[in-house]
C-alpha cells in the first residue's frame, strides 16, 4: 500500500511537472515554428524584408514595411486615445465616484473587454465607419486639412475606413484592459499615504499626481504596455476597418494594412511557397514585437508586486 502510494505520488508529480514544461515549450515552439516557416522569405530578402515596401505576389517580391507601418500607426493612434481615457476611468473608479457606483461601473467597463473582437470589427465597419465618413471626417478635413503640419494627416476623401477608424476601434478595445489594470494598481496605494496628503490639504488631483502616480509608476506603464501588446496583435477588428490597401499614405483617413490584417486576409490565398513563407515571416515579426512589449509589461507589473511583498 505504501509503495503504491509512493508510486502514485511520483506519477502525479511527473504528470503535473510535464504540464508545466508544456506551457514553457508551447511558447518556444510557436516562435520556432514561425521562424522556420518564414526562413525562405528571410533567406531570400534578408533584413531588407523589414524595410522594403514591395508586396507583389506575381513578381514574388515581398517586404514588410507597409504592414509594419500600419500596425505601428494604428497602435499609436489607439494608445494616444486610450491612455488618458483609461487613466481618467481608473481615477474615477478609485477616488472620485461614490462607493455604490464603483462596482457596477467597473463591471460594465470590464464587460467591454469580454465582447469578441469580431463584433467590434463589424460594428466598426457597418456603424462607426459610415458615421465618421458622413459627419466627422469631412469636418476634420475642412478644419485641419489646411494646417501646415497636421494638415496632410487629416486630408483626403472621407472613405470612413482607414487608419484613424482602426485606431479608434482599437482604442475602444484596449481601454477596458488598461483601465482595469490601472484601477487594480491604484488600489494598492497605501491608504495612509493618501490620507496624509489629504490631511496636508492636497486636492484629489494633487494626490493623484504626487502620491498615486509616483507610487504606481512602473505598474501603470506595465498596464499601458499590456494594452499596447493587445493593440499590436489585434486582428479581426482591424481587418474589418483598415481597408486592406497595400500602401503607405500620409493621411490617416486613407486605408492601409497591418501585419495581422495582411495575414488574416491573404493567408488562405497564399498558394506559392514564397508567398506563404513571407506571411509566416510577418507572423514571426509580430510575435517578436508583441513578446518584447508583453515581457516588458509583465516585468514592470512585477516590480510593484515585489514592493508590495507579494
Amino acid at each position: 500500500m505504501a509503495r503504491l502510494d509512493a508510486f502514485g505520488d511520483r506519477l502525479f508529480r511527473r504528470l503535473v511537472t510535464a504540464a508545466g514544461w508544456f506551457v514553457l515549450l508551447a511558447l518556444a515552439a510557436a516562435a520556432l515554428s514561425m521562424y522556420w516557416g518564414g526562413r525562405e522569405a528571410f533567406g531570400q530578402f534578408g533584413f531588407g524584408f523589414l524595410w522594403s515596401s514591395d508586396w507583389d505576389p506575381v513578381q514574388e517580391e515581398y517586404g514588410a514595411l507597409v504592414p509594419i507601418y500600419g500596425t505601428v500607426v494604428s497602435t499609436a493612434i489607439a494608445m494616444t486615445i486610450a491612455v488618458p481615457v483609461s487613466f481618467g476611468i481608473a481615477l474615477f473608479l478609485t477616488e472620485v465616484s461614490p462607493a455604490w457606483l464603483r462596482q457596477p461601473l467597473g463591471a460594465a467597463i470590464e464587460l467591454l473587454a469580454g465582447i469578441p473582437s469580431i463584433i467590434y470589427g463589424m460594428w466598426g465597419l457597418f456603424v462607426l465607419a459610415p458615421f465618421l465618413a458622413e459627419h466627422v471626417y469631412p469636418r476634420l478635413d475642412a478644419w485641419l486639412g489646411g494646417w501646415p503640419l497636421l494638415g496632410p494627416l487629416f486630408s483626403g476623401p472621407p472613405l470612413g475606413i482607414g487608419m484613424l477608424t482602426a485606431g479608434l476601434v482599437l482604442a475602444i478595445m484596449v481601454i477596458p484592459f488598461i483601465s482595469s489594470v490601472m484601477r487594480d494598481v491604484f488600489m494598492t496605494v497605501p491608504v495612509r499615504l493618501k490620507e496624509s496628503a489629504y490631511a496636508l490639504g492636497s486636492t484629489t488631483t494633487e494626490v493623484a499626481w504626487n502620491i498615486i502616480l509616483p507610487y504606481t509608476r512602473s505598474a501603470v506603464v506595465g498596464g499601458i504596455f499590456l494594452g499596447m501588446g493587445r493593440a499590436l496583435g489585434e486582428t479581426m477588428a482591424v481587418t474589418f476597418v483598415l481597408g486592406n490597401a497595400h500602401q503607405i499614405n500620409a493621411s490617416l483617413l486613407m486605408p492601409g494594412n497591418s501585419i495581422a490584417a495582411s495575414i488574416a486576409n491573404e493567408f488562405a490565398e497564399a498558394t506559392t511557397p514564397m508567398y506563404q513563407s513571407a506571411l509566416l515571416a510577418l507572423g514571426f515579426v509580430l510575435f517578436i514585437v508583441t513578446f518584447v512589449v508583453l515581457a516588458a509589461a509583465r516585468l514592470m507589473l512585477m516590480r510593484l508586486n515585489r514592493r508590495e511583498g507579494r
Binding site: 506551457v23 508551447a26 511558447l27 510557436a30 515554428s33 514561425m34 516557416g37 499590456l226 501588446g229 493587445r230 499590436l232 496583435g233 489585434e234 486582428t235 495581422a260 495575414i263 488574416a264 493567408f267 509566416l280 507572423g283 509580430l286 510575435f287 508583441t290 513578446f291 508583453l294 515581457a295 509583465r298
Partner: peptide
C-alpha cells in the same frame, strides 16, 4: 505572455 499573445500567431 501566452495569455495576451495575439491569437492569430497561435493560429499560424
Amino acid at each position: 505572455i501566452l495569455l495576451s499573445a495575439p491569437s492569430i500567431v497561435l493560429g499560424l
